[in-house]
Amino acid sequence: MKTTKTLLLFFLFAITFTACKKDEQIAPAPSITALEVGTSNSKIAHPGNDLHIEAEISAPGIIKDVVLEIHPESGAGWNVNTTYTEGFAGLKNAEFHKHIDVPADAKVGLYHGHLKVTDQNGQVSEVEFDLQVTADPSLATATGFEVGLNTAGNDLHVEASITAPNKIAKIVLEVHGNGWKKEVTYEDAAVIGKTTYNLHKHIDVAAAPKGHYHVHLQVVDQSGKEVEFEEHFDK
């Protein structure tokens, strides 16, 4: 009887220990999908403009941080090494959507990029991409790009001075953040065909909940080239 009881206790302990070990299994590593680099995933950047980078992140083990690195394929040049936690840490799923400033003096040539996600278990997933930095003086530019929210929190003021050697085809303003998004396209006679345009618009954001927002200014010229610029505001 004592032997039987001892064996039963042993098997009970073994089953309990195995169940606990199963409960303690580490979640799968993070994943990064739908990576898009540059306008329409062109993988091209231009000095003095923004570089659009977007991806979908999934981390069953909860995101700790996201790191973006960009460096020249060889020699010296423009470098990026930025760690993002705000808007990512503590989440299982997140959209990475950033516009990276490319300095006006960035060296043209071939670059290499890494987008890395680390979860709270220390597991890391990484995707790599190639990038070409090339000068194009015919691209549209936007200087003095500013956004401002009125005290009531319902009206967003947007302004910029736009120059487009190939003439403007349309201007798109997009506001997004905190699960809310609004896009407005301007294709009226005051815009189309102009080589210079002083943008001064007001967007109704009364329906946007409190939070941090991104404002994207996209200029498309009549040759089909697109450039995009980004600003931020808090509501």
Rank of each mutant, 00 (worst) to 15 (best):
I63G: 04
E228S: 06
V117A: 00
E69V: 14
W180F: 10
E95R: 15
K5D: 00
E146V: 03
P103A: 02
K98V: 15
G48I: 07
E231S: 12
T195K: 15
E187W: 11
S223H: 11
N41C: 07
H232D: 01
F145E: 10
E230D: 09
F145H: 14
G113P: 14
Y213G: 00
E231H: 12
H176P: 03
K170V: 08
N198P: 10
H71E: 09
A169K: 09
N49L: 10
T163N: 14
T118C: 09
W180Q: 02
P103E: 00
S40V: 01
K201S: 07
L173T: 11
E86D: 09
V184T: 09
G153T: 06
A206N: 01
G113V: 09
V172A: 00
N41Y: 00
T39E: 03
L12R: 12
I70D: 05
V66D: 00
V175M: 03
K235T: 01
G179E: 03
Y84V: 01
D204H: 07
S74T: 07
E69M: 10
S40H: 07
A59N: 07
G109S: 03
Q120S: 08
T39S: 02
H114W: 12
A89E: 12
Q222T: 09
G193C: 07
K225S: 08
Q25D: 13
D188I: 10
N154Y: 02
S161H: 12
I100D: 04
P28W: 05
T82F: 11
K22F: 04
A55K: 06
V220K: 10
T195E: 07
H202F: 08
N150E: 10
E95I: 11
D155E: 09
D130M: 06
I168H: 07
G211W: 01
L199T: 15
G77W: 08
D155S: 09
N154L: 01
H46Q: 06
E24N: 13
L68D: 02
T163W: 02
F96W: 11
L51I: 07
H176L: 14
F88I: 07
A140R: 03
A19M: 13
K107E: 12
E174K: 13
S138P: 01
D204V: 11
A14I: 13
T39M: 06
A135M: 04
E159Y: 10
N93V: 09
L131G: 08
K2D: 04
G177R: 02
N93R: 11
L7G: 03
G122T: 12
V66H: 01
V133T: 10
I162V: 14
T196A: 11
Q120A: 09
Q120T: 15
Y197L: 13
G109A: 02
K22T: 08
I162S: 04
A89D: 06
V227W: 06
T82E: 11
E228H: 09
S40T: 05
T196V: 12
W180D: 00
T118V: 13
K194E: 08
E126Q: 15
K235A: 05
N41L: 10
A164H: 07
L8P: 03
F88N: 03
N154G: 00
H216V: 04
D234S: 06
G224L: 10
T4A: 12
